[in-house]
Structure formats: structure tokens, C-alpha cells
Design a protein around this nucleic acid. Structure first.
Lengths: 156, 156
DNA sequence: TCATATAATGATACACTATCTCATATGAGT
DNA sequence: ACTCATATGAGATAGTGTATCATTATATGA
């Protein structure tokens, strides 16, 4: 029996299954750290950095070191449980894939905040162009940048 | 008379004008470093990092320090002569704006290479959604990610 | 031209994120 | 329990981008 938290919904179970399968395939163990990080990540809604995740664990007295957090995030990436988004700052930003509707981001270049908006599928026109070049598409992100409402008000 | 390289095309002249105007507005001088970096940047086709630019200068025996390169790139950004693109790695990537047709990127997650493809304007549908939230759009980038042809061949 | 003020520059140190190393701890399987 | 591979943490390290500050260069006015 898995020692992972058993209160999870079926969607989280599905992700857990994906993760366990990946670990089995690559000969990695279901360790304390991996259980712990998996459960924490699944409870986060929205984006997070490795730093934020580490602090979240430390606040809960879940002992896990920074290198371990990075290592396990790498596992989760490889398993396809989380994905990475480039926000243009010096941090790596992650979000889990389950329960997330496809969406994109608009970044404020003044306060570095962002808003989300839904994927409208209008960008599918690009697929044929890119795949004609032999590139296999695994995903896409659209980044708008500009000035958020609050920063406009401040400037005025 | 400006001491900037005078062999330039009208498009580069236009950019030079934009830069000089910015310097004048903000009380900055037309210094040796700014001339030098401006000319080098204008000669680059495609993307570059501060590191690459610094090495390019050093190879040509153009003496300019790393802090100065960063400072002047900041000036060029503020003047709107270059723009920044988040590539998902730890570097800041720049490209000059002149002579560039609007385009986007597809990144290979295996070799970190990328291909470019033209902007098709199909993404304009997003503008109304975002601006309804009070966000003022200044630009946008579309990032596809996946596996390039070469990496697919290697894997096969 | 000289004096003075202001900006630019480079050397150096620094901050920060992410990663590497390696000794130790842990777990799985026999 | 023993053996051996993997996981972990402490600390060192790498790499990028900044900050500090003394020095140099430039512009301006007398």
C-alpha cells in the first residue's frame, strides 16, 4: 500500500499514479521526500517557486532540504506531473498540471505581477507551421506584457 | 556631430535617433561605452545574452567591462531599442527591435535550441479579454516547447 | 583654458538561485 | 540482520546579474 495521503480525489490519484509509474520505470524509490513534496505540490493552487515550496514545508515542520526539493521537482517534471513556466525573472516557476484549465499570462513589467486568461485555441494555426519544420510540439504558452491596472493608477 | 558609426542604414539611424533621444531626455551622456555597445548590438542578427555580447566585444579588443555591458543594455531597453525575451533558462536574452519582423519561438526542451516562426496576428483575440481587466498591453510572445528535429533523430 | 560639477567606468565584492559533492542515512530485498 | 543501491542534507560551488566606490572622462561656465 502506498504511504501517500489517501484522502485525495480521483484526479490527484491519477497524478499520483503517473508519478509512481515514472518512479517505477526509472528505478526510483517512493521515499519520504517524494511523498511529502508530491502532497504539498498537489495542495498548491497556481504557481510556485522552489523557494516558496521549501518555505511552505519548513513552516509545517516537514523536514526537507533545498537540494532535495529541487531534485524532486525535477522528478515531477520528468513524470509530467508539473510543468515549468518562464516568468522572465531569475526564478523557475512551476505549476501542477491536474485540475488546471489551459491558460496564459499577462505580466506587468512594473510590479512583476501577472494575471491569467483562458486559452482560446486561436493559436492552433501555428501548429502546422512549426510541425512542418520537424518540431514536435508538447505545449505552448502565450505571454503578454505591459502595465497592470494598479500600476497605471499609481502612475496617473 | 555624433561620433557613432556613420556607415549605417536609415533603419539603424532611426534606432540611433531613438537612443540619442532617450539619452537626452534622461540626462545621460553619449559615452564611449554607449557608442560601442550600440554599434555591436546593431550588428547582431537574432538573440544574444549579456555574456555573449561581452565576449564579442572582448574578442574585438573593445574594452568594456561586464557591469558596463549590463548598464548599457538597461539603457537600450529603456530606450526601446532592444527587447527582452524569457527563454526559460537562467540568462536574460535580448534582441534588437529594428529590422525584425514580429515572430515567436519554439524551444527544444532537450537541447535548449529554438526555431522562429512569424507572428500571424491570430492572437489578437486575446487583446480584448486582457484589456477588459484593465491591463495595458505593450507586447506579447508566444512560446511553443517540445522536441526539435535533431533531438528526435537522436532519440530514435 | 581652466575649474568645477556631474556622469561613466572598471575592479571588486556581493546577492541570489540553482546545482554539485560527498559522507551519512534510509530502505528494499535476500 | 546483512548487503547494496538509492535518498538525503550540509556545505561548497557555479553562474548570472547587481551594488559599491574610487577613479576617469566629459560637459559646462567663467
Amino acid at each position: 500500500m502506498s504511504r501517500f495521503d489517501s484522502r485525495s480525489t480521483s484526479k490527484i490519484d491519477q497524478e499520483r499514479g503517473r508519478f509512481l509509474k515514472h518512479l517505477a520505470r526509472t528505478g526510483l524509490r517512493v521515499s519520504r521526500g517524494r511523498e511529502l513534496i508530491f502532497n504539498e505540490v498537489m495542495q498548491i493552487h497556481g504557481h510556485f517557486t522552489a523557494e516558496q515550496l521549501t518555505k511552505k514545508c519548513q513552516k509545517k515542520n516537514l523536514k526537507v532540504s533545498r537540494p532535495t526539493v529541487f531534485r524532486i521537482l525535477h522528478d515531477l517534471l520528468a513524470a509530467g506531473v508539473i510543468r515549468e513556466t518562464a516568468f522572465g525573472d531569475k526564478h523557475r516557476h512551476f505549476e501542477h498540471v491536474y485540475d488546471e484549465k489551459p491558460h496564459h499570462h499577462a505580466f506587468c513589467i512594473y510590479c512583476h505581477g501577472f494575471i491569467e486568461f483562458p486559452d482560446m485555441k486561436e493559436d492552433m494555426v501555428y501548429h502546422s507551421i512549426i510541425e512542418k519544420k520537424g518540431f514536435k510540439i508538447l505545449g505552448h504558452e502565450m505571454h503578454f506584457y505591459g502595465m497592470c491596472r494598479k500600476c497605471q493608477e499609481k502612475a496617473a
